[in-house]
Design a protein around this nucleic acid. Structure first.
Lengths: 157, 157
DNA sequence: AACTTAAGTTCCCTTAGGGAACCTGCCCGG
DNA sequence: CCGGGCAGGTTCCCTAAGGGAACTTAAGTT
């Protein structure tokens, strides 16, 4: 299915989608985030086809989101762990979870809770302005052209 | 391509992906967020096929993310606007943009900047703990089972 | 020697996405 | 009042991506 490529668009959202826009990738990342790190574990947990899982893992490793680590040399066995970039990507997952908890969880409430380890409290993660610390959402944001807008740097390093 | 459905999984991330997991949806939402609201405008801006755009818009309207509003009765013309749910979904887009700005923007810098209207400053949006206001990321979170975990409420209202 | 396990790989089949052409209701200029 | 234009889709065919199941490889286990 000749899918359009997003990586060349001058848009950080499109570029991020180029990385994890295909629907299984966020769930694979979620699994790795919560400790499901091995091929068969992920495959069983998600019900994804082995073929597609192989492709996605390879892609995420190539792009630096995950690292493939050998946890047994003989027999050779591997697990997948988050890189620094992968940890940052989890912010997107946390934002998705926040939305799902609020709008899609139904009367039973959210399936999982998040405890902020430094303060010990169970609380949702909120988007805040990096300058004034107040809530920062689509309806309180103005979008302005940035330095990377009209340059030839469509394909970043 | 018989795609696996995510909506029945007991996971707020999977449920959110059921809504906007297909790769075009976030870009459509982005367009609407920044003021590109009409069919032909979105189609031209994204380069998406008209067929798929029709399907996505219909889906997003059905699920309550967008609303289809008539802006001219004769001739009948429509535009798409964010619902309250749609505005909340934009938090996910903002998190994606934040990641893309940080990891995928290259030397030219981010394509767009975000100004927080209440304080007037250009700043990135950060995830903060709703209780203590400190940064809250994957490496400072413990995941615990929540009330909606093992109930029969797999398919919320 | 036979069985099991983790981690893939290969095969075929179905279906979703792309592209281009077509349709519909209405406005407008001549 | 007729042809053209425009917004907003709809229809068609083709290709390629996802699903599923079987097979493979390299080792350990009984």
């Amino acid at each position: 299915m000749q899918r359009t490529q997003f990586g060349d668009m001058v848009c950080s959202i499109a570029r991020t989608l180029d990385l994890i826009g295909e629907p299984w990738s966020p769930l694979i990342l979620r699994d790795v985030m919560v400790g499901i790190r091995r091929f068969d574990q992920i495959q069983a947990d998600l019900g994804i086809s082995r073929k597609v899982l192989t492709e996605r893992l390879k892609w995420l490793v190539e792009r630096g989101v995950l690292a493939r680590r050998e946890y047994s040399a003989r027999p050779p066995r591997y697990e997948y762990v988050l890189t620094d970039q992968g940890v940052d990507l989890c912010d997107v997952l946390i934002a998705m979870a926040r939305f799902g908890d609020r709008w899609l969880a139904g009367p039973a409430g959210p399936p999982v809770l998040y405890r902020h380890r430094p303060c010990g409290h169970i609380a949702p993660a909120d988007l805040r302005c990096g300058h004034c610390d107040q809530p920062m959402h689509a309806d309180t944001i103005d979008v302005l052209p940035g330095p990377g807008m009209a340059t030839g740097a469509d394909v970043p390093a």
